[in-house]
């Protein structure tokens, strides 16, 4: 019969090879972790104020909004798609929830006050709707996600602009204020929310049928379709999940920063994509997960926070962040190649 070869391989020769193969195939998970350890070690040595419990709390708080947004983005990237509208959707959702809340009289916005729960519901409906539009463009019309979400980025920014008209709103519903800037037993609520959402994302991806489908669609879309999966439904769901996560991140972010205004979340697009990819989730889809995203979040968080502690030229910081991101991308692609070779 076809291949009974494996049976005749001496056991002693099998082992070291399979360990090497295992390490190579796990490259994408190991490399980000090593990066994190190196960065932490470096900053801990460079600055006495870095490796403190307080500062660890700072880092957690600093990555929370990115973390919430990155949960949904992880689904999208696992499907081998991209969503460039996440930051804009976060922004417009944050603005919308403020728009539907009674602002102080000095705030010059023609807002529509509503009960808190209704404001939150409307804001969530808005981000879900924008996600549905993304999903529709991608799956029904067939616009590549890169372009579709680029357009959505503008659309969401446009809605934001129309709502606030260059002004700044401050009030959001109490529940959002609590979740965004309150704390329970010394732990900021926003950290708890981020942790719960990351956990939820992980459980969905790992233990549900939908999660498996996400990996399969990302791994080989054609095969998924020929296995009778509803690929469009899965891709569309991922886009909606990304939009809703962004919306939640946006609402809590507005509460956390204390204000809602245009362009407030612009840096979060790059940060979220960076967190997912630096963590080792494959841009080609099908590999990675929330665990990787968490490591990526910490890499970014430690980097951003640490650079403040070592008192470096703030303009150089931007360059360094870019270089680290590039290095992570190189590792991402290289890990994919190593893996393919080890499977070959």
């Amino acid at each position: 019969m076809a291949s009974s070869e494996s049976a005749t391989v001496p056991a002693d020769r099998k082992r070291p090879r399979s360990v090497g193969r295992f390490l190579r195939s796990q490259m994408r998970n190991i490399a980000p972790f090593l990066t994190l350890i190196c960065l932490t070690g470096f900053f801990a040595a460079a600055s006495p104020s870095f490796a403190t419990l307080d500062n660890f709390g700072n880092i957690l708080t600093q990555v929370s909004v990115t973390g919430i947004i990155a949960v949904g983005l992880t689904f999208v990237i696992l499907c081998a798609e991209i969503d460039l509208s996440i930051a804009s959707i976060a922004n417009v959702t944050g603005i919308a929830v403020a728009y539907f809340t009674l602002q102080d009289s000095y705030v010059n916005i023609a807002n529509v006050p509503m009960p808190g729960w209704a404001a939150v519901m409307l804001a969530l409906a808005l981000c879900a709707l924008l996600g549905v539009v993304n999903a529709f463009g991608l799956t029904v019309i067939g616009i590549p996600s890169f372009i579709m979400t680029l357009a959505m980025m503008q659309i969401a920014a446009g809605i934001s602009a129309l709502l606030v008209r260059g002004q700044i709103a401050y009030k959001v519903p109490d529940v959002i204020t609590t979740l965004g800037s309150g704390s329970i037993g010394g732990i900021p609520c926003i950290v708890i929310v981020a942790a719960l959402m990351l956990l939820g994302g992980h459980l969905v991806l790992t233990y549900t049928r939908f999660g498996r489908y996400v990996y399969m669609v990302g791994g080989n879309r054609e095969a998924a379709e020929y296995s009778g999966l509803n690929v469009k439904l899965i891709l569309g769901s991922a886009m909606v999940i990304a939009a809703v996560c962004s919306g939640i991140g946006g609402m809590l972010g507005v509460a956390h920063f204390g204000s809602a205004q245009q362009n407030e979340f612009d840096t979060y697009l790059l940060d979220s994509i960076a967190a997912v990819v630096v963590g080792g989730t494959s841009l080609f889809g099908g590999r990675g997960g929330i665990g990787n995203t968490i490591v990526g979040l910490f890499v970014l968080g430690v980097l951003n926070n640490g650079l403040d502690h070592v008192n470096i030229d703030s303009f150089l910081k931007i360059l360094i962040r870019g270089l680290i991101l590039l290095a992570a991308l190189v590792i991402n692609v290289y890990a994919q190649r190593l893996r393919e070779r080890s499977v070959d």
Partner: peptide
């Protein structure tokens, strides 16, 4: 086969 199977899984 490529159109039917998930080689990494």
């Amino acid at each position: 086969r490529r159109a039917m199977l998930f080689h990494q899984e």
